[in-house]
Simulated assay, not measured.
Amino acid sequence: MNVLEVTDVRKHLGKREIIKGISFNVQEGEIFGFLGPNGAGKTTTIRMLVGLISPNNGSIKIMDYDLHKDREKALSYLGAVVENPELYGYLSGRENLMQIARIRGISKVEVDNIIKLIGLEDRINDKFKKYSLGMKQRLGLGAALLCNPKLLILDEPTNGLDPSGILDFREIVKTAAKERGMAVFVSSHILSEVQQLCDRVAFINHGEIQSIENINETTTLNEKETLALITHKNDLATSIIKDLDYVYDYKLEDDKLSVIIKSGFTPSLINNLVRHDIAIEEIYKKHKGLEQRYMELVEGGVR
């Protein structure tokens, strides 16, 4: 079941089109990554998804409710952690959660379940202002999960966290998605985090989605691989490489060749170069998996 459906959404700021007809969906229990460089349109998209701004064209549906036509109903299924959580510093973690619970009619039992899920049992009675950044992020996530949303939106959720905090946050999100059947939308520019956390990923650049791919297919069944190659005859090597039908792209920088080839054709490339009396000083693969796809789709090729 599609929890979030975005169809041909466009957004203009003045005469400039920021978002250029993007479409995607996020399914129940799925963690969906939104990956792109700064200025690609990630933040503008999130602001539209949470109802802060409206698209000029297209539609956004949450649980089949149109965000423009049935705004209150659509947003009732939404939880979000955008940037750093803003909670009351003079209250404890539990008091902050109970404030939200009272407003929304949520039981104390559910508050306790959330506290256990986010792993703050030992510090939940401490003042929020005394929390580390990682603990604040966990409590912010807990606040977003209190109403048991069908769609959880996370904007750069691990910014500023140490490695331990990142691991903890990742496991909480995975557990919540699996146990509660939530759809999770994660916007980030951190490649490794998206690869570790998400099931599918959309690559966005200049307001356009370049591709939407399954993470497992991207990381394990990639049809291309990138090689770093050092020889003593780079000019000759380049003239040979450019005519090979299994070579997609190449670039020479600082006496090192970067070559994108069809997966599995490294031995063929080596044989071709050796036959032309080109000695290979060093060769190795780089930009594997998601990183390679990002370079191809967003950065325009090898780097």
Rank of each mutant, 00 (worst) to 15 (best):
Asn159Pro: 08
Gln27Trp: 03
Leu91Asp: 02
Lys69Phe: 03
Ile230Arg: 13
Ser263Cys: 09
Leu236Ile: 14
Arg94Ile: 03
Val26Ser: 04
Gly289Phe: 08
Gly36Asp: 09
Ala237Asp: 07
Gly89Val: 03
Asp168Gly: 00
Lys11Asn: 04
Leu117Glu: 08
Gln99Glu: 13
His189Lys: 09
Asn222Ala: 08
Asp255Arg: 10
Ile115Ser: 08
Ser59His: 07
Asp162Arg: 06
Thr226Asn: 00
Val6Ile: 14
Leu91Pro: 06
Arg47Val: 00
Ile240Gln: 02
Gly58Trp: 00
Gln292Gly: 15
Asp162Ala: 01
Ile114Lys: 02
Val184Phe: 06
Val3Met: 06
Glu193Ser: 05
Ala183Tyr: 06
Lys73Glu: 15
Phe24Tyr: 14
Tyr284Ala: 13
Arg138Met: 12
Ala143His: 04
Ile166Phe: 03
His276Glu: 15
Asp243Leu: 07
Asn56Arg: 05
Val259Phe: 10
Leu35His: 02
Ser192Cys: 01
Ile53Arg: 01
His68Arg: 14
Glu291Arg: 08
His287Ser: 14
Leu244Tyr: 05
Leu117Cys: 00
Leu67Arg: 04
Tyr294Asp: 06
Asp243Thr: 14
Phe34Leu: 15
Met1Tyr: 01
Gly264Cys: 04
Asn84Ala: 13
Gly207Ser: 05
Gly21Cys: 13
Ala176Arg: 06
Glu17Ile: 02
Leu167Thr: 12
Arg71Ile: 10
Lys69Arg: 13
Ile241Gly: 11
Pro149Ala: 00
Lys233Trp: 09
Asn96Gln: 02
His189Gly: 09
Thr44Asp: 03
Glu171Asn: 14
Ile53Lys: 04
Asp70Ala: 08
Ser132Leu: 07
Leu133Ser: 04
Lys15Asp: 13
Glu282Asn: 13
Leu75Val: 10
Asp277Gly: 03
Asn2Pro: 14
Ala183Glu: 05
Leu252Asp: 07
Met48Tyr: 01
Glu291Val: 11
Leu87Asn: 03
Leu117Asn: 01
Arg71Ala: 11
Lys15Gly: 15
Asp126Asn: 13
Val9Ala: 02
Tyr294Ile: 09
Glu86Gly: 10
Ile209Ala: 00
Ile261Pro: 12
Ser107Met: 03
Thr43Val: 02
